[in-house]
């Protein structure tokens, strides 16, 4: 039997979608309002899914206290209440679209030592959500 644990976390951050190699017109054409030079913000919801055997002595795939601390340390401490473009080095030369945020977060969370990362989800707004399970999934 396959068991997957899902946990949702929240962070609020601002970003701007902008490719420095493009003209202002091109940025405006591709990214629309999101290219606004002063940035704008979202209440993001990050959904982390991990899988693995359930330890019979605890009934758990992983202790939530360990998972919460790891997510806090690996993502939330750096991503919550910041301007992603300017304050998170991972986005120095990477446009912080939700897709790219998913990839950056997924690559960090793969290091979680107590369970296997199954996938991550990111809600940028109630209407836009994204899911990423690494590249290998496409070959499964």
């Amino acid at each position: 039997m396959k068991v997957i644990l899902h946990r949702r976390y929240r962070f609020s951050a601002s970003h701007r979608l902008h490719q420095p190699g493009w003209s202002p017109e091109e940025n405006r054409r591709v990214y629309g309002k999101c290219a606004n030079e002063h940035g704008h913000g979202h209440n993001y919801v990050l959904e982390v899914a991990v899988t693995g055997p359930v330890d019979p002595s605890t009934g758990m795939i992983t202790n939530l206290a360990d998972l919460d601390a790891f997510i806090e340390r690996s993502v939330l401490a750096e991503f919550d209440h910041v301007y992603l473009n300017e304050q998170v080095p991972a986005f120095d030369s990477l446009v912080p679209t939700a897709e790219n945020i998913c990839r950056v977060v997924y690559d960090r969370l793969r290091a979680y030592p107590h369970a296997r990362l199954a996938s991550i989800g990111l809600e940028e707004t109630g209407a836009n959500s994204f899911e990423y399970a690494g590249e290998s999934r496409e070959n499964e």
Binding site: M1, K2, V3, I4, L5, H6, R7, R8, Y9
Partner: peptide, 13 residues
């Protein structure tokens, strides 16, 4: 809770 849920699927799914 809305922020904590578990999926259980049979073998091979």
């Amino acid at each position: 809770t809305p922020d904590l849920f578990v999926d259980c699927m049979g073998n091979g799914q």
